[in-house]
């Protein structure tokens, strides 16, 4: 990375206060993202991928509190900004798309009005101009007959079409970063491919950085420049996509890479990651939260935070006992 980072997350920790105790959902997560770069965040469900994304945008729910670290946008801290200042960032600087696109759209508002809402929230546009721009955005996400679709309600569109509308909403104000949270979950395979191609094409054309959050390692491998592997709220390994998948250092990253089914895999030979995520509200979480599941764990894995170990291909793992 030569350019100054667009986004820098420094040692970010976040906890949810719940009735069952404090859930430490993020533990000193650090990552950087350059302009135009595509980063994949992978990990099993509950590993904190989405929580991290929401925390970056300041969208964590009321029970969530940042307990340490910082988020820097173009070198400026944004984790302490008020709602009004964050509002100006959301849309023109960073935007987000979600899984279950139909639920992510306002069910009783015409999609043209929803697009106009976003455009007019950030730019002094008249009604007619916003409408024209909305139609242009629908054309960009390759929705046929965009001018007529402006009047459609989300329930009149397919899931794939709804995700295209969601992408149009997110890109309406030309953000420098798009966070895509499981954007293709729930869509059929051909639609998945079409949505991912569309996202990649639009990101390249605009020089837009993308964070792709997914538990689909194949998807991440196919579309991302770099990969960050998360486990139980900790970032265990980051690096160039090829390095993380071909020569993972962290035992969890290795187990994940092995669990990707190939053409010859059968149910009998499919490998899984043994064990399950630790309870994040436990008061005695080990320093490395993978220690309880790790075949090569040592006593100090539980007591001392693991160091960052660089690998030969540019990957970095946080582990006391990284593998080859």
């Amino acid at each position: 990375m030569s350019a100054a980072p667009l986004l820098e997350v420094r040692e970010l920790s976040l906890a949810f206060r719940t009735r069952g105790g404090t859930v430490r959902a993020l533990d000193r997560v650090s990552l950087t993202l350059g302009p135009g770069e595509t980063l994949g965040i992978v990990g099993e469900s509950g590993s904190g991928k989405s929580v991290l994304a929401y925390a970056v945008m300041g969208l964590q729910d009321r029970a969530g509190r940042l307990t340490g670290g910082a988020v820097l946008w173009r070198g400026r801290r944004i984790d302490r900004l008020g709602e009004a200042a964050l509002r100006r960032l959301r849309g023109p600087e960073m935007a987000m798309i979600f899984q279950s696109p139909r639920a992510a759209l306002n069910p009783i508002r015409r999609i043209g009005d929803q697009l106009a809402d976003v455009l007019r929230a950030h730019r002094p546009l008249g009604r007619a101009a916003a409408r024209a721009e909305a139609a242009a955005m629908l054309a960009q996400v390759r929705i046929p007959d965009p001018a007529a679709r402006l009047a459609a309600y989300p329930f009149e569109l397919s899931g794939g079409m709804c995700q295209r509308v969601m992408i149009a909403l997110a890109l309406a104000c030309a953000p420098a970063l798009l966070i895509a949270d499981e954007p293709t979950t729930g869509l059929d395979v051909t639609t998945q491919a079409a949505i991912m191609d569309l996202l990649r094409g639009l990101a390249r054309g605009r020089g837009m950085a993308t964070i792709l959050i997914t538990h689909d390692l194949g998807l991440a491998a196919a579309h991302c420049d770099r990969i960050a592997v998360m486990h139980a709220g900790q970032l265990v390994e980051t690096g160039p996509t090829a390095a993380v998948f071909a020569a993972p250092l962290h035992p969890y990253a290795r187990a994940l890479a092995r669990s990707v089914p190939g053409p010859e895999t059968t149910l009998a030979t499919l490998e899984t990651v043994p064990g399950s995520l630790p309870d994040l509200s436990a008061p005695d979480l080990p320093a490395c939260r993978y220690a309880g599941r790790c075949p090569q764990a040592q006593p100090r894995c539980r007591t001392e935070a693991p160091p960052a170990v660089p690998g030969a291909a540019g990957q970095v793992a946080r582990c006391w006992n990284p593998g080859p």
């Binding site: 509002r87 100006r88 960032l89 959301r90 979600f98 306002n106 508002r109 809402d117 929230a121 104000c173």
Partner: peptide
Amino acid sequence: DFVRTARALGLSRARILLVYALR
């Protein structure tokens, strides 16, 4: 979810409350 979307896209609080939520 769609209220979260509206927040993620920077709509004003008044618009989210009155147009997105109340309706």
